[in-house]
Computed example of a mutant assay.
Amino acid sequence: PLPGGTEDLFEKLKVEAVKVPQPEVNIRGDQNVRYEFVGKTILNAQRAGIAKVGFVIEPPPRN
């Protein structure tokens, strides 16, 4: 099993990884997110075969 209870995320990413064209995973953290969870997300994407993982650095739009 994968660390930290991320098996569901891994399974979903495996489904996406075989699509053509393969989608890119974009991560947008906020000041409250723990780095551990960002790291686990990247690890799961890599293990699932996702080739592109990026970070969204612009803040979300304000309503």
Rank of each mutant, 00 (worst) to 15 (best):
I57V: 11
I50E: 02
P1R: 04
N32P: 00
P3M: 02
P61Q: 14
A17N: 08
A45D: 01
V25W: 10
G5C: 14
I27S: 04
T6V: 12
T6R: 06
A45R: 05
T6A: 12
G4N: 12
P60H: 05
P60F: 01
G49E: 06
Y35T: 08
F55Y: 04
F37N: 13
R62P: 10
E58K: 07
E7D: 12
T41Y: 00
F37C: 02
N44Y: 00
Q22E: 12
R34T: 03
G39N: 08
V25N: 07
R28H: 10
Q46C: 06
N26M: 12
A48D: 02
V15Y: 00
Q22C: 14
F10C: 05
K19M: 08
E36K: 11
G54C: 11
Q22W: 11
A48C: 03
E24K: 15
E7Q: 13
E7G: 05
R62E: 15
R34G: 01
V33C: 07
Y35L: 10
N26H: 09
K12Q: 13
T6N: 06
V25L: 15
D8K: 15
P3I: 03
P1D: 05
Q46E: 09
E58G: 00
P1Y: 02
R34S: 05
V53F: 12
A45I: 02
G29M: 09
I42F: 06
V25Y: 08
V20H: 15
P3D: 10
E16H: 07
Y35N: 14
P59L: 03
N63Q: 10
D30H: 03
G5W: 04
V56Q: 12
K19C: 08
Y35V: 06
V20F: 13
A17E: 03
E7Y: 07
P1V: 07
V56H: 05
D8R: 15
P23G: 15
L9Y: 10
E16W: 04
G54W: 00
R28Q: 13
P3G: 03
G54S: 15
P23Q: 12
